[in-house]
Design a protein around this nucleic acid. Structure first.
Lengths: 357, 357
DNA sequence: ATGAGAACGTAGAACGTTCTCCGCGTGTTG
DNA sequence: CAACACGCGGAGAACGTTCTACGTTCTCAT
């Protein structure tokens, strides 16, 4: 009513007194546990509403659940994560769980510390997105707290995973480019985060898929891979290397939309037109792909869907499932204006000298 | 050592037993409170290390602090928030506090619910970034939990604020453009989030600064303002409106980098070159500004610095300060390649017919 | 009527901290 | 030498839940 004093918190005890029942009864209503009559539920609910009761999460944490799940990632800056997060939030919508994000930074120590912080705060579940943090650490944490990993394809061990079929995604991209007549299709890849110990990271599968698809299309001799750093700068560096090399590729698949934009930048600087002289395919189909008139063709990986899947898996774990489960999502090439058929320009020099990575 | 059984948590009791002291003593060491000898501190510390003790945040929450602060924002997607968050994390670096992000979405109800969730989890402090959430709600929450608001210029009431001088920023942008010879300088602004009840939101000050600067430069008759929606789409719509109107502006100041990219897109679609036919200035100087060869001139608002300032203010509050404090950061125009002097192209038609907003 | 269950509620002990007293030694002072 | 202060450490009561036991009452077949 009046905003008055600092207003001591309304507790279960207050509600119990007001409703004329025991605290245990109130607790039961709260958790809709066994042993409550409709009449009592009604009365308690009314009291809770009237008093404006809100459960004290910390106190809950001492006994049971905190109704909190943590999403652990390296940086907010990655637009793909935004999609995943939306999916996770969606997946928990309608439940009593709240989602908090921990942006841990890139060092393994910091990431481990963040994970510990989540555990210390009695979070009920943790979603690790992107191959942050060491796999052993994940297994370690999963021993105490239900955990879902989004990204790496390594065999799970006491936790669940949501993965995307990068192998198929790379294949689809190569096929798309090959269908347009491209033969010298290069990959701007990455070696991944230093210190990362996952073996089967998304980038690894993507490269395997690329190589396999090239071989299957009879383009094995045109395989060309450059490993760059993260984000735009990495893409720009890789792009420069690829586009100043000889023979120059007519198409580049980048392992990330951001990297693709970096390649685009390198191309502009070299006076190479996209898609006239170079077809460019990104990966993840984030908002970057549609930005700024680039209209990047990109492989969609349905980040939101992956997030929702992670939420569902976590909820199942919280319900008691113990068998490790892996969910795989499938890619889809979204064609925009950064890819075009070859031969639309005279840049092709006919020679097709091979160049392996 | 051995990873062994599910490993019951190491508690203060275990540490006490191991060090041969009371739990109270351990607690004192933990909080470096009064009444401890160097010898005892040493012994307890050793035991904590050996046993791998980590404080149980939920239990702490029942009594004192949880060493947790929450950052409340609408969406992770905003790259400016990424900068702010980095600043906040920086500001808490070296302390025992951990930072968690709540992405609440755009509805006032959801934002309030998120704030409540943070309070329920006994977070020690809350940073509200961007004019999310109602001001009355903020005041309400601040009554129980130290709070810092980043963005709006409304008078504070029981909390602290970090604001940026958008008035000066807009003025600097206009001056920059005017110095390049531009006279028909338009503003692609916004009406802000619907349902938002802050009166002096950043956009409002920005528009005021724009109008004042135009007047001061004797360009009052060229003032032209369009209010669009959020992000790229909004910028694109506004850009289309402005660029198809007559007389067409030779320069546009957008209230956000994303909006500026939208304007850029609209310009491309209309065959209007940047900066040849149109000079474009963004706001916030986020990573978007450097992306994709756009090389956007933008007004830097030092997001990281704002975040750090917020952290500092919060720490001070937690130390006991009660007087409301406001920190203001100053803007700086970062010139890139989206602005150029007029007259470099023949598009100028000489007529300078006025057009008020 | 009687007893067996089911249905409904309650008491009270955790959970892991913090923090207010309280007491014990050991000087220090009048 | 009594009185007192001070430095150090401990006992134990919170904090707001959950949940296991355990009563009590009701239902219903025998």
């Amino acid at each position: 009513m009046t905003r008055a004093r600092p207003a001591r918190r309304v507790t279960i005890v207050d509600v119990a007194a007001h409703a004329g029942v025991s605290t245990a009864a109130v607790s039961k209503v709260l958790r809709n546990a066994y042993g409550t009559s409709p009449a009592m539920i009604e009365r308690v609910r009314a009291s809770m509403a009237e008093l404006g009761y809100r459960p004290h999460a910390a106190a809950r944490g001492m006994r049971g659940r905190t109704f909190t799940v943590g999403v652990l990632l390296d940086s907010i800056r990655n637009p793909f994560f935004a999609e995943v997060l939306d999916g996770v939030r969606d997946g928990f919508d309608g439940t009593d769980y709240h989602v908090f994000v921990g942006a841990a930074g890139f060092s393994p120590q910091d990431q481990r510390a963040m994970a510990d912080a989540m555990v210390d705060r009695q979070m009920d579940g943790i979603v690790v997105v992107g191959p942050s943090i060491h796999p052993e650490d994940v297994a370690d944490i999963a021993r105490g707290t239900p955990t879902v990993v989004i990204g790496p394809h390594d065999p799970v061990d006491g936790y669940d995973a949501v993965v995307h079929d990068e192998f198929a995604g790379a294949r689809a991209a190569v096929q798309h480019l090959h269908a347009l007549g491209h033969r010298r299709i290069a990959l701007a890849g990455t070696l991944g985060t230093p210190g990362n110990r996952w073996a089967r990271r998304p980038e690894v599968l993507l490269e395997e898929g690329y190589r396999a698809a090239m071989a299957a299309a009879g383009l094995g001799e045109h395989v060309r891979v450059v490993h760059g750093r993260q984000y735009e700068e990495g893409g720009r560096e890789s792009g420069t290397v690829l586009l100043t090399g000889s023979p120059r590729p007519t198409a580049i698949l980048a392992w990330t939309d951001a990297a693709a934009l970096g390649v685009f930048q390198a191309a502009s600087e070299l006076g190479i037109g996209v898609p006239a002289d170079l077809s460019l395919v990104g990966y993840n189909n984030t908002s970057l792909a549609t930005l700024t008139g680039v209209a990047l063709t990109s492989v969609d990986q349905a980040g939101a869907q992956m997030g929702t899947a992670a939420a569902t898996l976590l909820l199942e774990r919280l319900e008691g499932r113990t068998r490790d489960t892996v969910v795989t999502t499938t890619p889809q090439v979204v064609v925009r204006r950064s890819t075009a058929a070859t031969g639309t320009t005279g840049t092709t020099d006919g020679t097709d000298r091979a160049a392996a990575s």
